Simulated assay, not measured.
Amino acid sequence: MIRTLTATAVVALLLAACGQPEATPPASAPETPATPAPTTPAPDPNALTAGGYGPLRIGMTRAEMVTALGDDSDPNSVGGAEPEICDQWRPARAPEGVLVMIQDGVLTRISAASPSTLKTDRGFGVGDTAAAIKAAYGPLAVATPHKYSEPPAEDIFVWASGGPATAGAWVDDAAARGVRYEINGEGKVSIVHVGGPAIQLVEGCS
Rank of each mutant, 00 (worst) to 15 (best):
A165R: 14
A63G: 06
M101H: 10
I156T: 01
G196L: 01
V142Y: 02
L69A: 10
P75C: 06
L13I: 09
T166R: 15
T117E: 15
H193T: 00
G178H: 13
G127H: 01
I156G: 02
G185M: 07
I102N: 13
Y181A: 07
P139N: 08
E154N: 12
L13T: 14
P75M: 11
G187P: 03
A94L: 01
A94E: 06
V142T: 05
E203G: 08
L56A: 10
S190N: 13
K134A: 05
Y53T: 14
G97V: 04
R177H: 05
A29W: 00
E203K: 13
S116Y: 07
L140V: 07
S161I: 05
P41R: 02
S190Y: 01
G105D: 02
A153L: 01
T129N: 09
P151N: 06
L5W: 00
V158T: 03
A165F: 08
P91N: 12
S73E: 13
P91W: 02
P75L: 11
G127V: 01
R3Q: 07
E22S: 15
A42K: 07
K119C: 07
T24S: 11
D128L: 06
T166G: 08
L201E: 14
G204K: 02
E96D: 14
R90T: 15
N46C: 04
L5E: 00
D104R: 14
G162I: 06
E64I: 04
S116T: 09
A160E: 15
P25G: 13
L15R: 11
A112M: 03
M1N: 14
A136L: 07
I191S: 10
P55F: 00
A9Q: 05
R57Y: 02
T61G: 14
L14D: 10
H146S: 04
D173R: 14
T166S: 14
P45H: 07
E22H: 13
G123N: 01
P55W: 00
V126Y: 04
G162H: 11
T144D: 02
A37W: 02
S116N: 11
T4P: 06
G196P: 03
M65Y: 02
W170S: 10
T166E: 15
G123M: 00
V189Y: 03
V98A: 11
A27C: 07
V192R: 06
E22L: 15
V202Q: 14
T120P: 03
D172P: 05
I85F: 11
T40N: 08
R180H: 06
K147V: 04
T129P: 09
F124P: 05
G125N: 01
T120F: 02
L107K: 13
V126T: 15
A37R: 06
K134T: 08
A130Q: 05
P30D: 02
I183R: 12
A198L: 04
G79N: 08
N184Q: 03
Y181E: 05
T144K: 10
T117I: 12
P38Q: 01
V158W: 01
A9K: 08
A34G: 05
P25K: 10
I58R: 09
S149C: 09
A92T: 15
K188H: 11
I133Y: 10
A136Y: 09
T40G: 04
